[in-house]
């Protein structure tokens, strides 16, 4: 699975640009705010209801 067509998947050591999305309880998630808490953020991408 490491071999896939997408070439620009961020790698170890790379910075992640700030982003924000809506949460399941209709709040706003801001990555920058989460990181400001001093905790690591595990971000898992899943297929969802496809």
């Amino acid at each position: 699975m490491e071999k896939r067509l997408n070439k620009d998947i961020p790698d170890i050591g790379q910075d992640i640009p700030a982003f924000e999305v809506v949460t399941s309880d209709n709040k706003t998630f801001k990555l920058s705010e989460e990181l400001r808490s001093g905790q690591n953020v595990k971000l898992m991408f899943y297929r969802g209801h496809w």
């Binding site: 896939r4 170890i12 050591g13 910075d15 992640i16 990181l35 690591n40 953020v41 898992m44 991408f45």
Partner: peptide, 16 residues
């Protein structure tokens, strides 16, 4: 849809 993947981002904002 998204490919399944996991990233852990450090408080400094980079992927570890």
């Amino acid at each position: 849809i998204a490919y399944p993947a996991t990233f852990i981002i450090s408080p400094a904002g980079n992927i570890c």
